[in-house]
Nucleic acid binder design. Structure first.
Length: 961
RNA sequence: GCCCGGGUGGCGGAACUGGUUUACGCAAAGGACUUAAAAUCCUUGGCCCGAAAGGGCUUGUGGGUUCGAAUCCCACUCCGGGCACCA
């Protein structure tokens, strides 16, 4: 009989659906309620991130993720857990809307089409989903509760409106949360994001910043995701210090992580949006200039602000001075856009000697630089300790140098990728010209560091500038630009050779190469080298001189009356979107009563069908043009009022879906968002599998909401955490590259499923590489799996099954395989589990005609999570009426795994010289005797005596001579 | 720049707690079956020297610790990902 996977797969998918094999409820009495199903079985909530229905249908990446999750779910089910593995669609949002826009279909229509297609595809891959509990976020029955959650957040003071500069995507025509801005670009469309001043709804995620951070230590999550969250939350410890303004009642508050450098604060900077600028207006002499700068900074797009080759700029507030609370010096106040309004207090104390950015600014505007942290002492604090020299000591000299340098006097070298080097110290020998000295030095440096890459080394035309440092010594700073020829990879062994090959480039060539951005970039490098940001010991700091900087931090804070503060990088979650395809924000604005939530009984606020759903781009949702939608009455006073027309971020939909799944069919699903009784049994989620790309989006938002729900008594999770275990799967790439349409390497899953079958496709995906690492999809590889499945089919159809219970010859391999496969699946090492099964199959084939039913059964069970259809088919052929997927997982007998013999490695001086088969548990004496009788060993040892013999039990013996 | 991963045959990847590097699979070569091809089955294989026995080298590079290092430590380098004027 031929292995007809199409027929088999279709048949069993139908069977599973009809018999509701994967509905946890059916494992008891078939009652349509998850409440009743858990009395005798252990519930196991196996969750995977639901997909956004997108343009091309289900992506292989989705399939990869779901299959990985499903293998685990099936494994747990067979281990006797009552597994709940739901699936749904995250259908709202810009992603789906943009697709609808692109093809010119209304998103409501498109949702219906996508839904069908997605569910069909999802069934086709044969995952054990609990179909009865599926949900779609655009279903009013679902989003009613999304709105309800919004209202609760508002009532608890966690949802608020505020006017703030927000991220605006000009292409998607909506605002975005910080988390959705990826390196200055929109997460969805990659368009550059600009800043816009708008009044928007926010969720106070910052209230939970500390808990979100601390709980990370308590949960079993992929470490890389935890790290990403830690970085995103960005806790920093520092001090808040107030700087008085001379002859003025207001003061400037700054947050700094380095209060120990306070004595080095030589000026202050306010962000252009800082409110103090307005307050100080009357005292500012150059108000015009300042206003102009502020206006310019405000109007500038982020594109300009982010630009890499942007030089720092600013304007001094002339006529006002701040007082450094430590030194009592009067220091200038500047306004500059390198200080961001939303970070810290929007103002900084600038310490140019110990902050790269401040130094860059100070050099440009000729502001004083004072070094206050001197050096690092070597570990010991005992007397006689050694002091390390700081690379930059002669500040005045350096400024002078940089000034020269910034007048574009430099030397350069011809290299490939632009590299750089700076030399601040050095000297000129008596009879050397400065050029010769510099050239020698360059060669020394270049030769020393990079000589092996230099073939065609040429010194660019240039001049060297020197600043007298000491008598007959010179300091010269050069910024060097290298360019290495493409083919110049050959190593040059001798420095002399390099010297010999020196050639001068023409001035034109140099100038073409030295663009302003190269220039600035090198300047920053130089600043970076000059600044000392490490810890050390204080100097120029009055009575704090000599104190370790770590210690000085809090002493100085205390001294100036500042206070210790914890600062988080994370900002509140911007929730409103000026788009159509989302959950309408359930709020009403009344001129008399201010913002009022829609009464809970009136929920949901249904998203109306409107013809023109295109984003308008004026900071308003298309709903704002629908009178019938926004005209309403104030729930408080009954007067005329206006609905909020923005919709909420899609990430709100997905931040709580896991709570809804088990309750979708509860008798109370219409009265409560989640049934408390069911929730108590099934949650938190036992295993959550998804992509690491959601590290700081979905996963952080979900945790935040769960914590709030916990505080309100709506859920009772341990530590308020919704996902006990989370594992991030790796990225599936194709032909060594990230999949993308432009590269033309998109893998179409439907094609493979059709051609090779779902089982083969699933198994191949799992076999590629470790699941958590991600893998490289190569067409040809799937043939190996197809062959494997064909062989399985053939073996099971050879009709030579024996009734006897065990095959003695295979018993050991079988039990070893059970152990290995069990452990591998538990650790998501699916690739090695599959290879174990391949080895086992080969051994079974070798046995040929005398296999027992027992071994067939066990093999099928081990294979079942990976290839659910073929195993189900063969299982039924073995005479069972019950699904294999609810059969108990095989156990192994530890006694049967032990080997009687092993290969003893015989080494001489740590090199393997021979191996012998020895009985397990052999003693050192016996091993020595056997080993020494080996010809090859005798030869290597000769007549020398072993100094030492290393014996590792059941592993090796090593003679050291 | 900072923070994470990672570097092992022609390729995807194995390797327990430091103990035979290259399991399993792909691709390749040779053979069997076939008129032929496909499919299937069998055999081979890190690199270098050697007829073989055997020896030398080999897990990005250079050092170190160790009887012994892919694995631990230090420095460097390359690739992938994330964050980025966060005070």
């Amino acid at each position: 009989m031929k292995y007809d996977f199409q027929k088999i797969e279709r048949r069993w998918q139908k069977f599973w659906r009809e018999k509701k094999v994967y509905e946890p409820l059916n494992m008891t009495r078939g009652k349509p309620n998850l409440k009743l199903s858990t009395s005798r079985q252990k519930p196991f909530y196996n969750l995977m991130m639901f997909p956004y229905p997108s343009a091309e249908g289900l992506h292989v990446g989705n399939m990869y993720a779901f299959t990985g999750g499903d293998v685990y779910g099936r494994f747990k089910r067979m281990q006797g857990f009552n597994v709940f593995e739901p699936m749904g669609l995250d259908g709202f949002g810009i992603h789906s809307e943009n697709y609808a826009l692109k093809i010119g279909v209304h998103p409501m229509k498109q949702a219906e089409i996508s839904e069908k297609r997605f569910y069909k595809q999802l069934e086709m891959i044969g995952n054990g989903f609990a179909w009865d509990e599926r949900l779609e976020t655009y279903d009013p029955k679902y989003y009613r509760w999304t709105q309800w959650i919004f209202v609760q957040l508002f009532k608890h003071g966690l949802a608020y409106r505020k006017k703030a500069p927000v991220n605006w995507c000009p292409s998607c025509k909506t605002v975005l949360a910080d988390e959705q801005v990826i390196t200055g670009r929109c997460e969805r469309c990659s368009h550059l994001v600009i800043k816009k001043e708008l009044e928007q709804w926010f969720f106070k995620i910052t209230k939970y910043a500390d808990k979100l951070l601390k709980n990370l230590d308590k949960i079993d999550w992929s470490e890389r995701v935890k790290i990403a969250q830690r970085n995103w939350i960005g806790r920093s410890e520092g001090a808040e210090i107030e700087f008085r303004i001379k002859n003025h009642e207001s003061s400037i508050k700054v947050f700094t992580t380095r209060p120990d450098t306070l004595f080095g604060a030589t000026y202050m900077v306010l962000a252009p949006e800082h409110e103090l600028i307005e307050n100080l207006e009357s005292s500012i002499n150059n108000l015009e200039e300042v206003k102009k700068y502020v206006k310019k900074a405000g109007s500038e797009s982020d594109e300009e602000r982010i630009a890499e080759d942007r030089e720092k700029s600013g304007v001094e507030l002339k006529g006002v001075k701040a007082v450094n609370p430590a030194t009592k010096e009067e220091i200038p106040i500047w306004v500059a856009d390198y200080v961001l309004g939303h970070v810290g207090t929007g103002a900084i104390m600038a310490v140019p000697a110990h902050d790269e950015r401040d130094l860059e600014f100070a050099i440009k505007y000729d502001l004083p630089v004072r070094q206050v942290v001197e050096a690092e002492y070597t570990q010991m604090t005992e007397p006689g300790m050694v002091k390390k020299e700081l690379p930059f000591v002669e500040r005045d000299g350096i400024i002078a140098i940089i000034k020269h340098w910034s007048e574009e006097k430099y030397i350069g070298l011809k290299w490939k990728s632009v590299a750089w080097g700076t030399w601040v110290t050095g000297g000129i020998e008596k009879d050397q010209t400065p050029e010769q000295a510099a050239r020698a030095e360059v060669l020394e440096e270049v030769g020393y560091r990079n000589l092996r890459f230099v073939k065609d080394l040429g010194i660019v035309h240039g001049k060297f500038y020197h600043v007298p440092k000491k008598e007959n010594r010179w300091v010269h700073a050069h910024c060097l630009y290298f360019e290495l020829e493409d083919d110049a990879r050959d190593e040059v062994s001798e420095k002399e050779k390099a010297i010999h090959e020196l050639t001068w480039l023409s001035k034109e060539e140099v100038e073409r190469f030295l663009t302003p951005s190269t220039h600035l970039w090198a300047w920053r490098k130089l600043c970076g080298e000059l600044v000392y940001i490490g810890n050390g010991y204080l100097k120029n700091s009055g009575k704090f001189d000599g104190i370790a900087s770590e210690k000085a931090k809090w002493e100085i804070t205390k001294f100036v009356g500042g206070k210790k503060e914890i600062h988080y990088r994370i900002r509140d979650w911007l929730i409103s979107r000026q788009r159509y395809w989302g959950v309408p924000i359930p709020m009403i604005y009344c001129e008399r009563c201010d913002w009022q939530p829609v009464p809970e009984k009136d929920l949901p606020v249904k998203l109306p069908f409107i013809k023109d759903f295109r984003p308008k781009g004026k900071g308003q949702s298309p709903l704002a043009s629908e009178k019938s939608f926004y005209e309403t009455k104030c729930p408080k006073c009954g007067g005329a009022a206006r609905r909020e027309t923005d919709v909420s971020d899609t990430f709100l939909d997905s931040a709580w879906y896991y709570l809804r799944y088990p309750s979708t069919r509860s008798a109370h699903s219409g009265q409560v968002p989640w049934d408390p009784e069911i929730t108590k049994k099934w949650l938190p989620v036992d295993m959550y599998i998804g992509g690491a790309e959601h590290s700081v989006l979905h996963l952080l938002y979900s945790r935040f909401l769960a914590m709030a729900f916990n505080d309100w008594g709506l859920v009772h999770f341990k530590d308020g955490e919704p996902f006990t275990v989370f594992r991030a799967h790796g990225l599936l790439i194709s032909e060594g590259k990230k999949m993308s349409k432009s590269k033309g390497n998109i893998v179409n899953p439907d094609f493979y499923v059709k051609k090779f079958g779902a089982d083969a496709f699933r198994m191949y995906l799992m076999f590629l590489a470790p699941f958590e690492q991600g893998g490289d999809f190569r067409d040809a590889g799937i043939l190996g799996i197809t062959r494997f499945l064909e062989r399985v089919w053939k073996l099971f159809n050879n009709d030579k099954k024996d009734k006897k219970d065990i095959d003695k010859n295979l018993e050991k391999s079988l039990h070893q395989s059970i152990k290995k496969v069990t452990e591998d699946i538990e650790n998501l090492h699916y690739n090695t589990a599959i290879s174990t099964l391949m080895i086992l199959l080969s051994k079974m084939e070798e046995q040929g005609d005398k296999l027992s039913t027992g071994i067939y059964q066990t093999f099928l069970k081990l294979l079942a999570p990976f290839a659910p259809h073929i195993t189900e088919e063969l299982w039924s052929q073995l005479g069972s009426k019950k699904s294999i997927h609810i059969e108990p997982w095989p156990a192994y007998n530890p006694k049967l795994i032990e080997e009687e013999t092993f290969k003893l490695i015989v080494q001489v001086n740590g090199k393997m010289r021979d191996t012998i088969t020895a009985d397990t548990g052999i003693s050192q004496k016996e091993a020595e005797a056997i080993a020494l009788s080996l010809e090859n060993i005798k030869r290597h040892i000769g007549n020398k005596k072993s100094k030492k013999i290393i014996f590792v039990k059941d592993r090796l013996i090593n003679f050291v001579i």
